[in-house]
Write a protein that binds this DNA or RNA. Sequence first.
DNA 1: TACATGACTCTTT
DNA 2: CAAAGAGCCATGT
Length: 96
Amino acid sequence: MHHRVREIIAAVPPGRVATYGDIAALAGVPNPRQIGWVLREDGGDLPWHRILRATGVPAEHLRTEQLALLRAEGVVAHGSRVDLRRYRWDPDADHD
DNA sequence: TACATGACTCTTT
DNA sequence: CAAAGAGCCATGT
């Protein structure tokens, strides 16, 4: 399960973002909180900064760095909120 | 075994 | 659009 989640997060391309819920759904994990758990335990080598809350706002303790990393990839945040309508990763449309 | 915690989400106010 | 409450599941004590 752990592995499946890592796999999917690793597949999120630069300049795109996904929510905890998105990853959970794709990985077949019932509770999005588990995604956060995986990242905390074993997310050091993953693009964790591409994972946001459903609101588009990153987890509070990561807010600053996460937004900075995203901005470096071209993902701009308005205030602390990223426009998901624009940057949300679509697994079926990653063919570009 | 029971209770508390947490990189969360959804629905209702 | 923001705030509050309930639901959720793996871990640690």
